[in-house]
Design a protein around this nucleic acid. Structure first.
Lengths: 181, 181
DNA sequence: GACGATACGGAGCGTACGTTCCGGTTGTCA
DNA sequence: TGACAACCGGAACGTACGCTCCGTATCGTC
């Protein structure tokens, strides 16, 4: 992974960039040959660097999820946890809805990518924001991080079904705020 | 459609029944050959009755949606529209989540099946229940039938992501109840 | 600059699946 | 019951795509 030939490292980066773009636009359905062509590389080269299309996809998705987690960690110390949490929740949904790779990763196999490995960072960071928002009474207490991830999945589906309808996500947010019943 | 040979009519019914079962279990991904085998019929016979796999799928899905619409019409005259509406909303989600054909139909092409043709009956009936629930103040007034369909899609995604977690749908229901903001 | 190792490209393989085609079969009607 | 049309089964076709293979090109080193 470190002592690679210079051209190999270059090509690996090109493949990753092309995959990022292609998967984000068309999701997992994009043929691997297209990614190779977009990267200016042969199909064999892709397989030299990633054992399968699935592995490449996961690499791309996990990288994006890690960015979400990073952002969440940066907000963990904010002084108004309620607003911060809800803003973050909405922002993640909006960003993810623009990225078909994320949507497909969630749909496939029940969001396996969100659950395993690097997705764990996201789970932890999101859970922390939630905990703080609950502590100040901004969010109902009968939910946990797993529930939240499921809600994100649902909101993504809504967003894909009828894009841009603002108040649907707000309904969920209102539901999160409502007193626990 | 009417003056068919007896065996043709029989086979058509067998294909439809098999497709219903297979699509409900495995969604659109089930190979057409499997449906034919399940129906005890050759692949050619399936194509004699339905121009494409997609058409067969739509026929099955629309039939199911029509059942939902029927049920909704039967509830239109109830004396407690608030409860009736929310119960119906939850029940549709629960039923649909058990049927991968419905889930796939919603995912594919933004729920095209729900929007066109027979799906219209569902839209109308659902809208009527909603209107009555709003009239008695049980549901916030800033949503319409299209929003509801989108919410159903989202709840289905949640259900598939983390099955059986009751209170996620309840969050949405609470959001629906919440005062309009 | 030459040599071995490493990486590249893209043709080609295997598979899966939607769809079509046609020789045989079965229902219908006179 | 005979004959024609409608229908059936399933082999075969075309396509798409993930993945592999191997002759060739490129890189790093001495």
């Amino acid at each position: 992974m470190e002592k690679m030939r210079a051209d190999a490292r270059r090509n690996r980066a090109k493949v990753l960039a092309a995959a990022e773009e292609a998967f984000a636009a068309d999701g997992l359905a994009v043929p691997l040959d297209d990614i190779a062509r977009l990267a200016g590389v042969g199909a064999g080269t892709v397989y030299r660097h990633f054992p399968s299309k699935e592995a490449l996809f996961q690499a791309v998705v996990l990288e994006r999820i890690e960015q979400f987690a990073e952002e969440a960690r940066g907000l963990a110390a904010a002084e108004n946890p309620g607003e911060v949490f809800l803003d973050y929740f909405v922002r993640v949904i909006k960003q993810a809805s623009l990225n078909r790779a994320i949507c497909d990763a969630l749909a496939e196999s029940g969001g396996h990518a969100f659950k395993a490995g690097a997705g764990d960072d996201f789970r932890v960071a999101l859970g922390e924001l939630l905990r703080r928002a609950q502590a100040v009474g901004a969010v109902r207490k009968d939910i946990d991080g797993d529930d939240l991830r499921a809600l994100i999945v649902g909101c993504l589906a809504v967003e894909r079904y009828s894009p841009g309808s603002r108040h649907l996500v707000r309904i969920v947010v209102d539901g999160l705020r409502a007193s626990s019943s």
